[in-house]
């Protein structure tokens, strides 16, 4: 899911950088002093989570966790991914530094979509753990699917074979989508049990507005 240095053309790189800059700006505007530890911790989790390999047949996939980040952080997933990917790029040569904007946008836009999707799915039913698990599953899968579509879109401007690229991305991302869906679902149910306050924003519209009014 991370594009290396020197693969993409300048217009694609600039579009990605612009999208990331916009998302980060929106997030920083929303950012409350009290949110910072949460953003930092999720960012640290992303930094590590993206480096974990799950062996899968002849190849392996690595976690992205964008749905989880999106559900917990909303727009603030942008700065969280920005920091995590910047460090991965510098410390592990994972993803090119110039492609940073594209890589961040590719996972953060689906993360924000997941945030709102999760809001819609969990709107009516506040307490149901089952519902939460299902919502997490859907968001986990959607997060990866959207990221894969963005990846294809970014790579479609390079001169490689479109068909092979599409097939390679699908083969790698379908199992990943299932793994992430399960993981997101499990994490949410776990969080609901140990720390239900995380979901206050999703439970009550009024409460959510009150929270925002404070910002």
């Amino acid at each position: 899911m991370h594009i290396s240095e020197g693969v993409l053309s300048a217009p694609v790189l600039l579009t990605g950088a612009a999208a990331t800059a916009t998302g980060t700006a929106v997030a920083l505007r929303q950012l409350d002093n009290e949110d910072i530890p949460q953003v930092a911790i999720v960012s640290a989790a992303l930094f590590v989570g993206n480096l974990i390999h799950i062996p899968l047949g002849p190849t392996s996939v690595h976690l992205i966790l964008n749905a989880m980040a999106g559900i917990l952080l909303g727009w603030k997933a942008f700065p969280a991914f920005l920091v995590a990917f910047l460090l991965q790029s510098i410390l592990f040569q994972f993803g090119g530094l110039t492609a940073l904007g594209v890589n961040v946008a590719m996972v953060s836009i689906p993360a924000v979509v997941c945030h709102y999707l999760f809001k819609i799915v969990t709107k009516r039913d506040e307490e149901g753990i089952k519902r939460l698990g299902v919502a997490g599953f859907i968001c986990g899968a959607v997060g990866i699917a959207l990221a894969a579509i963005f990846l294809m879109l970014a790579l479609s401007f390079t001169d490689g074979s479109l068909e092979e690229m599409g097939r390679a991305i699908l083969v790698a991302n379908i199992p990943l989508a299932i793994i992430e869906a399960l993981l997101t679902s499990l994490c949410l149910v776990f969080l609901q049990k140990v720390k239900p306050e995380v979901f206050t924003e999703f439970q009550d519209g009024a409460q959510s507005l009150q929270r925002r009014g404070r910002l």
Binding site: P37, V42, V48, V194
Partner: peptide, 19 residues
Amino acid sequence: MNLNKSFKIIVMIFLMIGI
């Protein structure tokens, strides 16, 4: 400060696996 325990636990798990 809403720095919370469950996040810490999750991060610790990832950290352990990572190392």
